[in-house]
């Protein structure tokens, strides 16, 4: 699940509905990528994923929750080679 991505990539993990929509548990994506562009990059790859999952999900980078800058905002965070990024849809343990 959290295998090391190839050089020049970060690894993105998909859970629950994000995994169903992408048909994947994880994949490498090209780094660096500004965090503010993550959702539009994913929308490009998986049309519809933004409204169906991303907008109601949280995001972690290397297991820390991060704020994804909203559309139009620049933000300074950049996803780097080797980072582990995860899309965290609303949880349902118990």
């Amino acid at each position: 699940m959290s295998s090391t991505p190839p050089p020049g990539h970060f690894q993105i993990l998909y859970f629950a509905l994000a995994s169903s929509l992408t048909g994947k548990d994880a994949e490498p994506l090209p780094a660096p990528l500004p965090l503010s562009q993550l959702f539009s990059k994913l929308e490009e790859l998986y049309p519809g994923i933004k409204s169906q999952v991303l907008e109601s999900s949280l995001v972690t980078v290397n297991m820390e929750y991060v704020d994804v800058p909203s559309r139009g905002e620049e933000g300074e965070a950049v996803l780097q080679e080797g980072d582990e990024v995860a899309i965290i849809p609303p949880v349902s343990s118990g």
Binding site: F15, A16, I88, P89, V91, S92, S93, G94
Partner: peptide
């Protein structure tokens, strides 16, 4: 403890 788990723990049920 249960309420916090249900709120926060990164586990998903299908």
């Amino acid at each position: 403890a249960l309420e916090e788990c249900k709120d926060r723990v990164e586990i998903w049920k299908r």
